[in-house]
């Protein structure tokens, strides 16, 4: 039995060759984020690596407290700087995000990178009309005349399929329904033709019939505009609808990564397996759901070793020693679990 972990470097080389010479749009290396307060330090993100190619949709899947949103916010430097310690590197289109000054950051946000949120009311200003806000963003980043900016705003509202777009330009955010508001926010995010879209649970607060509309819209826009997208969600179903690749986060680390179909059909990590089993979708009503016992670890005091070990049904003694390094079963198919080598070998045979 070959229990030797495959070094991460060689795996990346495999990945590099497999993906050809595509330049990565996003390259995140060893990202750690800690929140330091008077009393405690919260280890929100603990060494996260991933990359996104242009036009690719990466879903970061995780439950609350997994660090998925924090990772996304760190990429836009949206975390309060006084209490936050960020280490590692984040490169977007070759720019080192963590080294940017205020002005360059302002150009990055809304220009090269845009973000959409779960609650559109947090992103939209309640005292201006939708049209004014989108036009402002266009003016700020692209310049040009006011009339041109407004024409662009109309174009964008039509792009996101807002009915009677011309009339909606003069609506205030609170005058729109939840779904329309979300579309307006998407229109604003797209106003300057971003190459990277960061989406933080944009469909979670929506009703089922609206959620699917917004998902389909996002998928279509992403494809047509060729945006790289990082889509944070807790919902496996949403990920299945939109992702090219999935990265599963647990306790601030990516524990599994791979193409969407592989991760959902043949999950490698026990956490992903447990998540799939405990997600209710057509299970027999006669039996209990296979729930993952316990609750996620306290990020203020993370023990050494695999963070999932206390809840894992397949735990071994070596799980408690150190967090397993990433192990690859194929190019771009990674999991951080000590059992991977055996599992991969068994699958290969």
């Amino acid at each position: 039995m070959n229990a030797e972990p495959i070094p991460a470097i060689s795996a990346q080389q495999i990945a590099g060759t497999a993906f050809g010479h595509d330049e990565a749009l996003v390259e995140v290396r060893d990202l750690t984020v800690r929140f330091v307060t008077r009393e405690t330090t919260v280890h929100a993100v603990n060494g996260v690596n991933f990359s996104v190619r242009p036009g690719e949709v990466l879903c970061i899947l995780g439950e609350s407290g997994s660090g998925k949103s924090v990772t996304l916010r760190a990429m836009m430097r949206l975390l309060p700087p006084r209490r936050t310690r960020i280490e590692g590197s984040i490169a977007i289109d070759g720019q080192d995000v963590l080294a940017l000054d205020k002005r360059a950051l302002g150009e990055l946000r809304g220009g090269l990178v845009s973000m959409i949120f779960q609650e559109p009311m947090t992103a939209l200003d309640p005292v201006y009309t939708i049209g004014t806000q989108i036009a402002e963003t266009v003016l700020r980043h692209k310049g040009g005349s006011r009339a041109a900016a407004r024409a662009r705003a109309l174009e964008l509202l039509e792009l996101v399929k807002i009915p009677e777009a011309a009339r909606r330009l003069d609506n205030y955010p609170h005058e729109l329904s939840g779904g329309l508001r979300q579309r307006a926010m998407i229109a604003m995010a797209l106003s300057c033709g971003p190459r990277l879209l960061l989406a933080d649970e944009p469909t979670t607060a929506l009703d089922a019939t609206v959620q699917i509309q917004v998902l389909i819209l996002l998928r279509r826009l992403q494809r047509e505009l060729g945006m790289g997208t990082i889509f944070v969600t807790h919902d496996l179903g949403v990920a299945a609808e939109i992702a090219d690749r999935i990265a599963v986060m647990y306790a601030g680390r990516i524990v599994e990564e791979g193409p969407v179909a592989d991760v959902l059909r043949a999950p490698l990590h026990p956490y992903t397996q447990g998540l799939l089993a405990s997600t209710v979708h057509g299970q027999s009503r006669e039996r209990d759901i296979e729930a993952i016992p316990g609750s996620p670890p306290d990020l203020r005091r993370l023990a050494a070793g695999c963070a999932f070990a206390p809840r894992c049904g397949l735990v071994q003694s070596e799980c408690h020693a150190a967090m397993p390094e990433p192990r690859y079963t194929a190019a771009g198919r990674m999991a951080r679990c000590v059992r991977i080598t055996q599992a991969a070998l068994a699958a290969a045979e």
């Binding site: 089922a208 699917i212 179903g237 609808e241 969407v260 179909a261 959902l264």
Partner: peptide, 13 residues
């Protein structure tokens, strides 16, 4: 019909 499919091969179009 609005429920996500849970299957990337059969997405809702």
């Amino acid at each position: 019909g609005s429920q996500p499919s849970m299957d990337p091969a059969h997405r809702i179009e």
